[in-house]
Design a protein around this nucleic acid. Structure first.
Length: 204
DNA sequence: CGTTCGATGCACT
DNA sequence: GTGCATCGAACGT
C-alpha cells in the first residue's frame, strides 16, 4: 500500500476542502513508547476572525499566532486546563484558519494507545477500537500529542498526516459540537459509517 | 436513556 | 477574575 505524506499544498487550500479531504487520511505520531496512527473520521473547520468560535476571533494574540502562519503546521492548545487539542493550519499566511481533529479509528499501535489512555485514567470501556481515539482530547492522549507539538511542521518531523488510500465513501456535514457560539455553521465533517465518531449526531 | 457537574491551566479582559 | 473547540462520573427518569 502506498503511503504518501500529505504535501503542504494539501493544507494551503480553502479550509472546508481540506476538512472534507482530511476524513479518511491517517494521522501518525512516532513518539517515545512507540508509533501510533489512526484514520481520521471526524474533523471541524474554524475559519477566520469572523467565525466567533475560531480562536482568531479576537484578532492576533500570542496563543493563536500559529493560525496566522504557515499552512501544514500543527496548532495544539490546552483546553479546560486538561486537554491538548490538535488542529492543522490551513489556507495561507495571514488568513487564520485550521481544522480540528476530533476522532480516529486506530490503525497502528493499539497496545501503546491503550497503555497511554489507561495511564491517563480511562476505564476499560473507553479503550476499545471505537473509543480509544474518540474525541479530540482522547486522541491526543492515545497518540502522545501535547503542547510540545504546537507549531510542529507536519512535513518534517515525527508528527504528520499521510494518505493510505482509505478515503471515506461518504462524508457528512453537521453543525460543530462542543462550542457555545457559531453552532450555525455546519463545518463538522464525519465519516458517515464510522462508529468511532464522537458526540450524539453520528448519522445525518 | 437523559442531564448536571467537578477537575484543571492558562490566555485574555 | 472569567471562560473555555472536554471528559467521565454521578445522578435522575
Amino acid at each position: 500500500m502506498s503511503r504518501r505524506r500529505l504535501p503542504r499544498s494539501f493544507y494551503a487550500r480553502p479550509t472546508l476542502d481540506v476538512a472534507r479531504d482530511l476524513v479518511g487520511m491517517v494521522l501518525v505520531h512516532r513518539a517515545d513508547g512507540g508509533t501510533a496512527a489512526g484514520r481520521i473520521v471526524e474533523v471541524e473547520a474554524y475559519i477566520g476572525e469572523d467565525d466567533p468560535a475560531c480562536h482568531a476571533a479576537p484578532g492576533l494574540t500570542a496563543r493563536n499566532a500559529p493560525l496566522y502562519g504557515t499552512p501544514g503546521l500543527a496548532y495544539v492548545y490546552l483546553n479546560y486546563g486538561l486537554h491538548s487539542l490538535m488542529n492543522v493550519v490551513t489556507e495561507r499566511k495571514g488568513q487564520p484558519a485550521a481544522v480540528l481533529i476530533r476522532a480516529l479509528e486506530p490503525l497502528d499501535g493499539l497496545p501503546i494507545m491503550q497503555r497511554r489512555r489507561t495511564a491517563a485514567g480511562a476505564p476499560p470501556h473507553r479503550v476499545t477500537p471505537d473509543t480509544i481515539c474518540q474525541g479530540p482530547g482522547n486522541l491526543t492522549v492515545a497518540l502522545a500529542i501535547t503542547l510540545a507539538q504546537n507549531r510542529a511542521d507536519l512535513q518534517k518531523g515525527t508528527l504528520f498526516l499521510e494518505d493510505r488510500g482509505l478515503s471515506a465513501a461518504r462524508v457528512v456535514w453537521t453543525p460543530r459540537i462542543g462550542i457555545r457560539v457559531g453552532t450555525d455553521r455546519h463545518w463538522r465533517a464525519i465519516d458517515a459509517v464510522s462508529r468511532a465518531v464522537s458526540g450524539r449526531a453520528r448519522t445525518v
